[in-house]
Simulated scan of single mutants.
Amino acid sequence: MEDTVIVDTSYSAIINAPLDNIDIPAWCFSLPDEEYQGCSPAHVAAGATRARDGRRMSINVEVIGGTPMVQHYVEQKSSPHHLLLRSISDLFTSSGRTTMEVNWELSVKAMDDGRCEFTNRVYTRPTEEFSAYLDRQGIPFDLFRAQRQPVSAAHNAGETPLFAASIERHALRHAKAAA
């Protein structure tokens, strides 16, 4: 299945907060719209809701490589230091609407008593609808992948340190509230 991965990017940044103060799902599912927008110029809006089966969902709207996307990230695995979300995301292109599977994995591990390493991984795969969309356009999958990878990598590289700073603020704010 590796040949069907469109993009797989992973970047890390430092969080200046103790591991015990960090709760990635609590941050993700309470992330204010303005805070999300501050983590990338490509971020338009964010909110949280529940999927039909009751699992938590983060709704994110962003524009990557000129393509507006609405992501419906449903919680797959969740613990304070690891969150895996999966979305069948809507893409709005000049040639019409389609979908793509986007997986967003956030994790943190302690470096010492007061610092952690945050990792932001995003990997995407085509849906059947997306493959049909490329076929209708006459775009070879490998060509699309080659063009999408640098755009997605640049986006992830830019947002990762800003997400880390946001998680750090969340961790420190909640540590003060608990004290």
Rank of each mutant, 00 (worst) to 15 (best):
Q37Y: 10
M100E: 08
L91A: 05
G65N: 10
T67P: 13
R55V: 11
N103A: 03
G54Q: 04
G47S: 15
N103G: 02
G65S: 14
T119K: 07
G96I: 11
L31P: 01
R97D: 14
V44S: 12
H72E: 09
S78M: 01
Y36T: 08
S89I: 05
G38T: 03
A48L: 01
V108D: 01
G54A: 09
V74D: 05
R55G: 07
N103P: 00
V44R: 13
A42G: 03
R86S: 11
I59N: 06
P68W: 02
G114F: 13
I88V: 15
G54L: 02
V44G: 09
A42H: 02
T119H: 06
A45C: 14
Y73N: 04
H81Y: 14
G96L: 11
D53W: 06
S107M: 02
L83E: 01
S40W: 05
D112L: 05
Y73C: 10
H43K: 04
R50M: 11
I88E: 12
A110P: 00
E34N: 13
E101G: 01
T99D: 05
V102G: 02
H81T: 10
T98H: 05
V74P: 05
H43C: 07
D113I: 14
R50D: 05
R86N: 13
D53Y: 08
A45L: 13
G47H: 02
T119I: 08
D33E: 14
H81C: 08
G38V: 04
N103F: 04
I64A: 06
Y36I: 04
M69F: 10
S95F: 09
V102Y: 00
L83K: 00
F92C: 13
E101H: 06
A45K: 12
E101C: 04
W104I: 03
A42K: 00
S87K: 03
Y73E: 02
T49P: 13
E35D: 08
S95G: 10
S95I: 06
T119M: 08
L83V: 00
Q71N: 13
H82Q: 08
T93K: 04
S87C: 05
D113C: 14
V61C: 07
L91G: 08
G96Q: 12
G66T: 04
L91N: 03
S58H: 07
G114S: 14
R86K: 13
P41V: 12
Y36E: 03
A48C: 09
M100R: 08
L85Q: 02
G38I: 04
S58P: 01
T98A: 11
P80W: 03
L84E: 07
F92M: 15
D113S: 15
V63H: 09
D112Y: 07
G65E: 07
D112H: 07
A48H: 06
L85W: 01
T49V: 10
V74E: 11
S107N: 03
F92Q: 14
H43P: 00
N60D: 10
D90K: 15
R50A: 09
D113Q: 13
Q37M: 14
